[in-house]
Design a protein around this nucleic acid. Structure first.
Lengths: 230, 230
DNA sequence: AAGTGGTCTAGACCACGTT
DNA sequence: ACGTGGTCTAGACCACTTC
C-alpha cells in the first residue's frame, strides 16, 4: 500500500472546500505544489483532481489553474437498464406483449429527426411490458431497419426490441428527454389508467455513428419514479 | 505527442466490439497483452479500459479479466443546474418570488426521511421561479436551519434558496427522484395551469454528511423537458 | 498459488491558454 | 513566452478473486 492514495487526496480536498479553507471561486494550489505538500507523485494529484472536476466540484483549465466551482453544477448519473432487468430488480416477473408490429413509411417528423431518406421505411412497434402481469411500461418504438440489420427476423415475441437492440446493435450515442404528459386514449388503454392522467415519459433517440437506429417513447403509469443519487 | 493515446485505444476497442471481433460477454485480452499489442505502457491501456468500464460498455474484475458487457447498462449524466442559470441559458430573464416563508415544526414524514429530532423545526419556503415573467418552476422546500446555518438571515428575496444553499452549504450527496404528478390546486394556481394537468416533478433530498440539509419538490409546468445525452 | 486489474512513482514531453 | 494541466512511460508493489 502506498502512503498516499488519490482517494485520500480527494477527501482532503473536499474537506478543505467544506471548511472554506479554499473558497468557492478561488484558485487552489497547482498539481506540483500539492504533490510536494502531500509527498506524492503529481500523477496521483492529477487523478484525484481530474475525477473531482468530472463531478463539477472544481474546474480546471490549463495555465489558468484549478478553482473551486462558484456555482457547482451537480451531476447525477442515471442508469438506463433494460426494462426486463428493471422489473426483475423489483422482484417481479417480467413479460412483454407486442401489440403492433408493422412496416410503414417514415412519418414526416421522424424523417427530419432521424436524418432519413424521404422514402425511408421504419418498423413500428408497440409493446406493453408487464411486471407480474401488471402494466409496467407502454413502449411506442420506430426502428430503422437499415441500421438495425436483422431486426426483421428478430423473435420480438420472446425478446423485447429494447433488449434485442442493446445486444445486437452497437450504439454510439443518443438523446434522452424526460417529461410529463397526459395519457392519450391509447396510453390509457394499454396501461389501464384514466385518459389524461399524468404519465412519466421518456423519449429516446439513439444513433450508430451518424445513422439513427431507433426512436422510442416510453410511457410509465402513475406511481413510477426514476431515482438516482448525486 | 505520444504515439498511442488512451483515446485512440478506446476507439479501437469500441471498433472491435462493434465488429464483433470481441463478442458480448467474451473476455478481451489482458492489459499486459494489449499494451504489448499497441506498443504502449500498461497505464495507458488501464486508463482507456477503466473509463470504458465506467460507461458500462465493458466490465472488469481482478483475476477474472475484462469482458464485453452482455447487456450493457447505459449511463447518462444529468446536469443539475441552478434554476437561474437554467432560465438564463434559454435566453430569458430570471426572477423569483418568495410566496411563503415560515418556520414550522417538522412534518412527521420528513422527520423520518431527514433523520431529524422529534421536535425539530424547519424553514418552509414556497418560491415561484419566473422566466421572462412566465411561471417556470414552483418550488416547495424545507430547510434544516441546524445544518444550513445562516439561512435565517439569508436575503432570500434577492437570491433564491437554491442558489444560496449551493453557494454556502457544502453538500456531500443526495437522492433525486423524477416522476409525473397531477397538478394540485396550489401547483395550478402558482404555475397558472389547470388543476390535474401533468407536471414534471423532481424531488430532491440533500445531505451534508449524515445530516439532512434540505428537501425540495420542484414542479415544472407542461412543456418542460429535461434533456441529456448518452 | 497464481493471475489480473488497481494504483503509485519519478520523470518526461506536450497542448493549450493566458499573459 | 511561459505556466498549468494533460498524457505517456517503465517499472513496481499490492489487492482481490478465482483456481
Amino acid at each position: 500500500m502506498s502512503r498516499v492514495t488519490y482517494r485520500a487526496i480527494q477527501q482532503e480536498v473536499l474537506a478543505r472546500i467544506r471548511r472554506k479553507t479554499w473558497q468557492p471561486g478561488a484558485l487552489i494550489p497547482t498539481e506540483a505544489a500539492l504533490a510536494a505538500e502531500f509527498g506524492c507523485a503529481r500523477a496521483t494529484i492529477n487523478r484525484a483532481l481530474r475525477e473531482l472536476a468530472e463531478t463539477g466540484i472544481i474546474e480546471r483549465r490549463r495555465k489558468a489553474g484549478t478553482r473551486v466551482s462558484a456555482t457547482p453544477v451537480r451531476k447525477a448519473t442515471l442508469e438506463i437498464p433494460v426494462t426486463r432487468l428493471e422489473v426483475e430488480a423489483r422482484g417481479a416477473t417480467y413479460r412483454h406483449k407486442v401489440l403492433e408490429r408493422r412496416e410503414i413509411p417514415a412519418p414526416a417528423h421522424l424523417i427530419a429527426r432521424m436524418n432519413l431518406a424521404a422514402n425511408a421505411r421504419l418498423l413500428h412497434l408497440k409493446t406493453l411490458h408487464l411486471a407480474d402481469a401488471h402494466p409496467f411500461l407502454f413502449e411506442d418504438r420506430f426502428i430503422n431497419p437499415l441500421t438495425a440489420t436483422g431486426i426483421k427476423d428478430a423473435p420480438l415475441e420472446s425478446i423485447s426490441a429494447n433488449e434485442w437492440l442493446v445486444r445486437n446493435i452497437p450504439i454510439s450515442g443518443g438523446d434522452i428527454t424526460f417529461l410529463a404528459e397526459p395519457a392519450t386514449p391509447e396510453d390509457a388503454a394499454a396501461l389501464d389508467v384514466a385518459t389524461g392522467c399524468a404519465l412519466f415519459i421518456i423519449n429516446r433517440l439513439t444513433w450508430a455513428g451518424i445513422e439513427a437506429v431507433t426512436q422510442v417513447r416510453l410511457a410509465y403509469p402513475p406511481g413510477y419514479a426514476m431515482t438516482t443519487k448525486i
